[in-house]
């Protein structure tokens, strides 16, 4: 039965940024496909909610409040998961932030800040740089470092890093974000090679435009919305569940020969110039 190849029954998954948006959808899809899930994020209520939904699907769940930029927190997340479930098969590094801002104030007309955007009237600060790199890159490094010895010991594992289409091309007013996602993509390529001998697959999901909390500000602007849609051949934004289903594929035995790859999930946008 081919469809069995797409199931992850009896597997244990860790999903960071699992309280909302894409991480929430990934956690639920993995649970639907049979996995027990440890949900991590900073906000306890949100991950408790996701965990409750996982349990409703008949799977075990664990909500672990975690700051993914802190080594102690991330090590603790993996240890808690091991204590509770005994093993970890799937790691989904999804936590991230996507700030929109020009590197320095533009000469002439300024871009209009989207709701919640950082202050455009001053140059990007080093603290902002660190925040983006810590949340989007250091977090991936910390979590992979934390599960590596365990996955190696069992000679199996699936690591799925959520980057972005922006990691493969330039986006206006996204210098830090796209740089951080490009870092995740190449980190994953190298780690895929390093861990291939242990049958640990490392792949990347590169979503295009998805309406989530993180992108709500931008999407609220009708002009930006229309402009974005014009650049997507399928003429619609993605649904978070579509990311979840790709994660299921990459977590399942169906993708055992696929490693070091970046999966564009963008309604065809990458094909356009």
């Amino acid at each position: 039965m081919v469809l069995k190849d797409f199931l992850v029954e009896g597997r244990v998954a860790i999903v960071t940024g699992g309280g909302r948006g894409l991480g929430h959808a990934i956690a639920l899809c993995l649970a639907e496909a049979g996995a027990d899930v440890a949900v991590a994020a900073r906000t306890r209520e949100q991950i408790e909610d996701t965990a409750a939904e996982v349990r409703k699907l008949g799977r075990r769940a664990l909500a672990v409040p975690t700051d993914v930029t802190q080594a102690d927190d991330v090590d603790g997340l993996v240890q808690r998961t091991l204590d509770e479930f005994g093993h970890v098969d799937i790691l989904v590094n999804n936590a991230g932030i996507a700030p929109v801002r020009p590197l320095v104030p533009m000469l002439g007309s300024q871009p209009k800040p989207a709701a919640g955007a950082w202050d455009f009237s001053r140059p990007t600060s080093e603290e902002e740089f660190d925040l983006v790199m810590d949340t989007n890159v250091r977090s991936v490094f910390l979590a992979c470092r934390a599960v590596g010895p365990h996955m190696m010991g069992r000679s199996k594992g699936k690591v799925i890093n959520v980057a972005s289409m922006g990691g493969l091309r330039g986006w206006d007013y996204h210098t830090l974000y796209t740089a951080s996602k490009a870092a995740v993509i190449n980190f994953s390529r190298s780690l895929a090679r390093e861990w291939a001998r242990y049958d640990i697959n490392v792949n990347v999901i590169a979503p295009g435009r998805f309406p989530t909390e993180a992108t709500k500000g931008q999407m609220a602007d009708e002009h930006i919305r229309r402009d974005l849609l014009r650049r997507i051949p399928l003429k619609r934004f993605g649904e978070p569940r579509e990311v979840g289903l790709l994660a299921v594929y990459l977590a399942s035995p169906a993708s055992d020969y696929v490693t070091g790859q970046t999966f564009g999930l963008d309604g065809g946008a990458m094909v356009l110039p």
Binding site: R193, A196, L246, V248, Y257, V258, G260, G267
Partner: peptide
């Protein structure tokens, strides 16, 4: 339908070769 938002992509199934 699991890949309903994926189009124009090339899925490389090469055991990791192209990653390096």
């Amino acid at each position: 339908n699991a890949s309903s938002y994926i189009t124009g992509q090339v899925i490389v199934a090469d055991g990791g070769g192209q990653a390096g």
